[in-house]
Nucleic acid binder design. Structure first.
Lengths: 338, 338
DNA sequence: CTGAAAGCGCTAACAA
DNA sequence: TTGTTAGCGCTTTCAG
């Protein structure tokens, strides 16, 4: 089914049919009706590629993520998809698996009209600065969400990672912890560094004797990670509080505590950056710093469409910070109602 | 950057450049090299829409899911994306939110060359039979995964839901349960019915006095669900075993038990269909039936590409069943080492 | 081995 | 209000 077929059937020109289909003001209501009717009857679906080629837009956006097996990104996708569907846009999804080269290759493909805009959470290895710069210069709207690349002038939807890190540490301090470790994935992610800075600052600001920060790197391959944790927790001076800076390290820590028969929160208190919906039914229920994932996804998409629709000339300097919230549960409680 | 620009620069024709770019055998190695070099230097990226329009394929597949905030689908996406990226394909993602009308609208868009193939997990309301039929008839490869629509002849990648349901019930029976409830979402999903049938069969097959099945529907809006569970668990004859047929009902059940001070597994044993990675650190650790999510995604994509590449003439009758596995943990244990 | 030319389906000047 | 026409960038016969 093509426009020209419709046109022939109706005894009209392709131009007229095309305009009628797009509800142009220069077409009579009568013909519009006739066209619409036949289109429906014959189940006409426009060829998006033809129209994209001609109009130089594609009605599709790209979402580039490190991964999707993390509840933050899952929730964010929901937010993104919701507004995209509302706007009649299609959503392409790409996973970088935190690999720089993949990210580069992916972004490179967007330079030729493939997508009308890009939503990006940069990979851990290092951000694809050049590709990004070129994209932005090519006039393709880019919105960072959650994980940004500072050097590129693009809109940003983030949460307050420094604040959150500070908040997490402060929370543990308030609960009496004096030896707080910060558990970090090996990657040099900006958001993790910010959380880490917040943690360091909170230690500095704390009353009483100075505390020595303790940052522990846990590579993502399981074996290693488990060992690191076991060592950390079996040490003579083991932490009495742990900040888990990233969701995927939560389960390993809990498991390690179980193995070593460390009681949470009596022996050690744990707070974790996560959107896990099972936090309240963990053993014990986990105190979390929860990111507004859905909202961030939604807001990011909304901002991207501002850029795509060129409604706001300075949309690219938008810098939205949506606060994370600390939800206190038993993993950091002081009384032992467990 | 277009082919004709490259051609001009090189003093060649567009045809030659096009062929060189696609590594055609009718082009000399020398010119191929020259073309490749300049293309890289000028950062040429082919316009996918132009080539799609011409070739009638799009190098993109669609993945249509009920939702993504479920660990099964998150994991499946990873599998899908992996093989798509390997094949150089793009992945469009669409969420139906279990709504029939959305699913219909989405599928309808695929009729005009938008995608080369569709990976579909049907929505809960009811499957979009007509749209699907038309898609299949239009020659667009469709692969069902996890949730299928029986009446449509398309490849299927599923798990053994009847078996799993049977296995779950059998497991509880073996652990001494005599009053087993089956917790179901309100939707009429084929996979849930299969699990349910397995459960019913297991009850029938069980030795000893006949047991009355008890199927409890929990609508997805939270309040309702919570009430239903509270009622179920406060009844005079409350269940001593529960099969949670779908991931998202797990947390509510655990919460309800907590509220009612029911001890799992002493007072009530729970087994759940879920891919939650936090299952081992729940309170208590949760016995699960785990679906091979990543593998299913991967296999589904692989099968789809068979269809797209037309390598196997009868790929559409492929019907792969990947078994789920029962992982026993404390939520169904008989001794009270808790 | 290279090139000329037609056209994929649609849109947007411009004419009528 | 409708129609004519010229492409968008690419692929693909078919000639050279």
């Amino acid at each position: 089914m093509t426009i020209s077929l419709l046109a022939k059937e109706l005894g009209l020109s392709v131009a007229t049919v095309s305009k009628a289909l797009r509800d142009s003001h220069e077409i009579s209501t009568e013909t519009k009706l006739k066209v619409a009717e036949l289109a429906k009857k014959l189940n006409y679906v426009p060829n998006l590629y033809a129209s994209s080629l001609r109009r130089k837009n594609s009605k599709t956006i790209a979402v580039v993520l490190p991964e999707v097996a993390d509840s933050f990104f899952s929730l964010a996708i929901n937010g993104i998809e919701e507004v995209a569907q509302e706007k009649g846009y299609h959503v392409l999804i790409y996973l970088t698996h935190e690999q720089f080269t993949r990210e580069e290759a992916i972004l490179n493909e967007f330079k030729n009209g493939r997508v009308d805009g890009v939503l990006l959470s940069v990979s851990g290895e290092r951000p694809s600065g050049n590709q990004l710069q070129e994209l932005v210069e090519a006039g393709i709207p880019v919105v960072f969400f959650d994980r940004i690349f500072e050097d590129i002038a693009a809109a940003r939807i983030i949460t307050d990672d420094f604040e959150s890190g500070y908040m997490a540490a402060k929370h543990l301090l308030d609960r009496g912890c004096r030896q707080i470790s910060f558990l970090s994935p090996a990657k040099n992610l900006s958001i993790i560094s910010k959380r880490q800075e917040g943690y360091l600052q909170a230690l500095k600001d704390a009353e009483g004797p100075e505390m020595t920060p303790d940052i522990i790197y846990c590579p993502e391959d399981n074996g290693q990670c488990h060992n690191t944790m076991n060592t950390m927790l079996s040490n003579a001076v083991r932490p009495d509080g742990v900040i888990v800076s990233v969701e995927k390290l939560t389960a390993p820590v809990y498991m390690a505590c179980k193995t070593l028969k460390l009681n949470i929160p009596k022996d050690i208190k744990i707070i974790s950056f996560t959107n896990l919906q099972t936090a309240p039914i963990l053993d014990p229920p986990l105190t979390t710093i929860t990111q507004p994932a859905f909202e961030m996804g939604k807001k990011a998409a909304l901002t991207l469409f501002k850029g795509i629709e060129k409604k706001h000339y300075n949309w690219a300097s938008e810098n939205t910070v949506i606060p994370s919230v600390l939800v206190e549960r038993q993993s950091t409680s002081v009384d032992l109602e467990l």
